[in-house]
Nucleic acid binder design. Structure first.
Lengths: 291, 291
DNA sequence: GGCGGACGTTGCGGCAAGCGCAACTTTCGC
DNA sequence: GCGAAAGTTGCGCTTGCCGCAACGTCCGCC
C-alpha cells in the first residue's frame, strides 16, 4: 500500500498541525510528534497559506519563524479549537452507548496511564464493557491490524503504519539504570536491552551515537524482566522512565546520568483510522485529552 | 460528467448548509438556495450527525425540526463562522494583488449590484484590472465554461452545472408589469416573455401553475427590450423586480398584483470551482458578503 | 574543499471521500 | 387509488489528499 487519501474527516487537523508547528518551529519535530509525513505537513501548511493568501512561516536557512500574519492566525486557531472543545465538553457523545471495546495495553500503561486516561470515558459511558488485554508493546500494533483490539495504549512509533491513527498522550524519556547495591558497571559495562521493540531501537540509536563498542549481556523479553535482571546486577539497562517509576523493584535500582540527553519516548493511543467512525471508538477518542 | 468528488476545500460549507437548514427547516429549499443536490445536503447533515453523535434534526412526516442538540450546535456554528469572519475581515487577502479579472454581468446587475458588490474588492486591490463584459444572463454560464470570464454576476439557477460554484448575493422576485397609461390587458391578455433563460423558465412555471391558456405576443431578447415593448402596450410582461426598479422606463410601467406569489429569483456570483484556488478569484470571493 | 547529514519541498501513484444522478420509500392530497 | 412531494440510498465517477522516494539547499566537519 502506498498513499492513502484522507481517511476520516477531521476538520481541525490542519489547525492542530499548524499550532504544534508554531511551538516547535521545526517541520521534522512536528511531523514526528503528530505522526504525519513531512510531505503532508509541508502541504498542509502550503494549503493553509494558499487559502489565507498569506505566508504563515518564514522558512529561513536558519530554521522557520512565524510571520506577523501567522501570529494572528495562531490566535484564530486557538480560539476556534477552544470553541470546538467547549462544544464537545458540553455535548460529548451521548451516554448510554453500549457494546464492548477491546483495549490492548502494556503492563506499564495499565499501571501508569490507563486509570486516568479512561476515567472520563468510563464515567460518560458506564454501560460499555471494556475488555482489557495486556502484552508486549511490540505486539500492540499487530493486534490492531488483526482486529483483535480496538484501541491500544502503548509506546507509539513516530511513523505509524498507514491505516492507523495515533495520538500522543504523554512522553517519557529513556533512562540508564543499574543495581543500586552493586559496584557500578558504568556506561561501558555490559548492557541489558530489550530483545526488540521501540525501546530497543531507541537504545540502539543512543548507544550508536556514543560510538563505543557495546557489550550486550542479555536481551530479556519485557520491561519487568529487564528490570529484574538489572536489579540482580547483570548490567546496565535501558528503560522508559515511566516504567521504572512504576516498577516493583525500583527501590533496588538507581539511575545513571546519561551523557547525551536520551530522546523523548512517546506513549499514546492508537486506533484504526476507519474505526473513528464507529461511535464507541469516536467517543473514546474525543474523551481522551490531546497531549 | 457525473459526480465530482469534493472540488475545493471549504471547511465551513457543512456549517453553512446546516445553518441555512436551521432556518428553512426544509431540505429542498436549502438545497435550492445553496446550490447543492438534495443528496449532498442529506449526506452532509448525516455526516455532521455521525461526527457529533447526536441527531440534529427530527425528520417528521410533517417537516423537519431542530432537536435540542441541534440548537446548541447551531450556537456553535454561528460562533465558529463569526470567529472565522472576524479573522477574514481583519486579514483579507493581501493588498497589492495585481493582474486582471474578467467579470461578466447582466446589464441589470451592472446597474443595481456591481458597484456595491465589488466596492470592497476594489478598495482592497486597486491594482487589479477589472474587465467588465455585459450580456445576456443566459450566456453568463457559457462564458465561464469557455474561460472567457472569471466571474459572473447574474441570475443563477438553483442547480449549477458541476464545475461551477455559485453564491446568492441577493434575491428579487418576478413581477407582472403593464403599460401604465394603457387599458389594462389584465392577467389573461397577451404576454411578453423573454425568449429564453431563467426568467422565461420561471415565468413558464408560474403561468402553467395558473392553468390557463397563455397567449404569448412576443419574445424579445433581453430585459430592456422587453420593458420597452411592455411600455408600448404590447402586453403583460414578466421581469425580475430588480430589473424594473433600475429601468429607464419604469415611470411608464405599473405592476400588477400577482395571484400566487411568484417564486424568489436568486442573483449572485458564479465562478469555476477550480478557480477558487487562484488568489485573485479567492480574494474576490472572500470579499463579497454572503447572502 | 568536498562530503555527509539535516531539513524542507516536489513528482508520483493510489485510495477513498464526497459529489450528482436516478431510483426508491414514505407520506399527503385530491 | 393514484400521483406529487420530500427525503434517502445505490451507484459510478472525479479528484483531494496521503505517503513514498527523489531532490535541492544549506550547514558543519574533517
Amino acid at each position: 500500500m502506498k498513499g492513502t487519501g484522507h481517511r476520516v474527516r477531521d476538520d481541525h487537523r490542519g489547525l492542530r498541525l499548524f499550532l504544534h508547528l508554531t511551538q516547535s518551529l521545526n517541520f521534522g519535530r512536528t511531523s514526528l510528534d503528530c505522526h504525519v509525513s513531512p510531505a503532508t505537513l509541508t502541504r498542509t501548511v502550503q494549503r493553509l497559506e494558499a487559502e489565507l493568501g498569506h505566508r504563515l512561516f518564514d522558512r529561513g536557512p536558519r530554521g522557520v519563524s512565524l510571520t506577523a500574519e501567522g501570529q494572528r492566525f495562531r490566535e484564530y486557531a486557538v480560539q476556534a479549537l477552544e470553541l470546538w472543545q467547549a462544544y464537545r465538553d458540553e455535548h460529548p457523545y451521548p451516554a448510554e452507548l453500549t457494546g464492548s471495546l477491546t483495549v490492548f495495553a502494556t503492563v506499564t500503561a495499565c499501571q501508569a496511564l490507563l486509570p486516568d486516561l479512561l476515567a472520563p470515558f468510563r464515567t460518560a459511558h458506564p454501560q460499555v464493557r471494556l475488555d482489557l488485554r495486556t502484552g508486549d508493546a511490540a505486539a500492540a500494533l499487530a493486534r490492531l491490524d488483526e482486529g483483535e483490539a480496538d484501541v491500544t495504549v502503548a509506546g507509539i512509533p513516530a511513523r505509524l503504519p498507514e491505516p492507523l491513527a495515533g495520538r500522543t498522550v504523554t512522553v517519557t524519556d529513556l533512562v540508564l539504570v543499574t543495581a543500586r547495591d552493586r559496584p557500578d558497571p558504568g556506561l561501558d559495562g555490559p548492557f541489558v536491552l530489550p530483545q526488540r521493540g521501540l525501546v530497543r531501537e531507541a537504545a540502539d540509536r543512543w548507544l550508536r551515537a556514543r560510538g563505543r563498542p557495546v557489550d550486550v549481556a542479555c536481551e530479556p523479553d519485557g520491561h519487568e524482566a529487564l528490570l529484574a535482571l538489572v536489579a540482580l546486577g547483570c548490567g546496565t539497562g535501558v528503560v522508559p522512565r515511566l516504567v521504572l517509576e512504576h516498577s516493583g523493584v525500583r527501590d533496588r535500582i538507581s539511575v545513571l546520568p546519561a551523557a547525551p540527553a536520551p530522546e523523548p519516548f512517546p506513549i499514546g493511543l492508537c486506533v484504526r483510522r476507519s474505526d473513528l467512525r464507529r461511535p464507541l471508538v469516536a467517543a473514546l477518542w474525543s474523551l481522551t485529552a490531546q497531549w
